[in-house]
Simulated scan of single mutants.
Amino acid sequence: MFVDSHLHLIDRSRLSYPWLAGVEALNRDHLYDAYAREARRAGITDVLHMEVDVAETDISQETRMVADIAAAPGSLIRGAISSCRPESPDFPAFLDQSLADPFVKGFRRVLHVVPDEVSEGALFRENIRRLSGTRLTFDLCTLPHQVEKVLALLDLAPDVTFVLDHCGVPDIASAAHEGWARGIARVAERPNVTVKLSGIVAYADPGSWEVATLRPYVDTVLECFGPARMVWGSDWPVVTLGGTLSTWVAATHALLADLAPDDRRAILGLNARRIWSL
């Protein structure tokens, strides 16, 4: 049974998603009912919603929308990772607001869609340090060439749990492994980061990938982080760029089949329950 730590919901009737105009394959609504139908069939029992880079003015509204869905009887959603703007002087007030809401489990600021100078700014880094002593995690969504930026943030707040999304976004379609693997090994040296096994089929060739295509990347993160520092996520609907949610679940079972049962259970759910108090 899976805990999905990375679901995106897109409802253009309620929120604004400026980036969707440039991603035609995803530029439509992706709603909870469609996800939940397939998720239940695949064995997913608990879900965290991951922010979808809505317009800044819609950040709080996104959390409220997801909380409304979570409140419905039988909902799979247990909490939300909220978008945030650590580069803003308003961040301390936003942090206080989020800490008062137990539905908010953590933050994410996608860093590969903004200049590197954003995460290097003094205010950004000061505000990341404010997460120390809180229950909130911080997801890192970066590209392999940004490993130095990742390391700098990890070292800012050694008692904060950071989560490296999508195995660090390897370029699987181009079989780019060596440079990415070196960066993964360096990141894994920091004990305060967990890696997310999520949606990597979207980075493979959609017409030709198979389990063997993904295995070198999954084996690398397993070797570097170990099962105790891995969580699982679907990255739905982005995962549909490389297949379906069910295809990714089946591939996950195959990729982890050789692990001990306790290690599989840790990756597929127990680690997430511990990290986010689900």
Rank of each mutant, 00 (worst) to 15 (best):
G199R: 09
A202I: 00
P144Q: 06
A204D: 08
G133F: 08
F162K: 03
L153N: 03
F124V: 12
P158T: 08
V169P: 00
L143E: 14
L123F: 05
A202C: 08
T161S: 04
R186I: 06
A175N: 13
D165I: 01
A188F: 02
L131T: 14
W180R: 04
L154E: 02
V118Q: 11
I184R: 00
T194F: 11
E117I: 12
A173R: 15
K196I: 07
A122S: 15
T134P: 07
A175P: 02
W180I: 06
G183L: 03
L154W: 08
S132A: 12
G183H: 05
A152M: 13
L140N: 08
K149G: 15
A152T: 10
G199T: 09
K196C: 04
I200E: 10
D205E: 12
K196D: 09
E126G: 12
T161C: 05
D165M: 03
W180P: 11
E126F: 01
Y203R: 15
V195H: 14
A185T: 15
P158S: 03
G133N: 11
S132T: 13
G133K: 12
D165H: 02
D155H: 10
L136V: 09
S132K: 13
P191R: 06
A122G: 12
D159L: 02
H166T: 03
R135C: 09
C167Q: 10
C141H: 13
V201Y: 04
G179P: 00
D171A: 10
D165G: 10
D159R: 04
A181Y: 08
I128G: 03
T161P: 00
A175T: 04
L154M: 00
I172S: 06
L123S: 03
A181D: 07
P170E: 05
I184K: 00
H177A: 01
P170I: 09
L151Q: 12
T194S: 01
E189V: 02
N127W: 06
P158A: 06
T134K: 11
N127L: 10
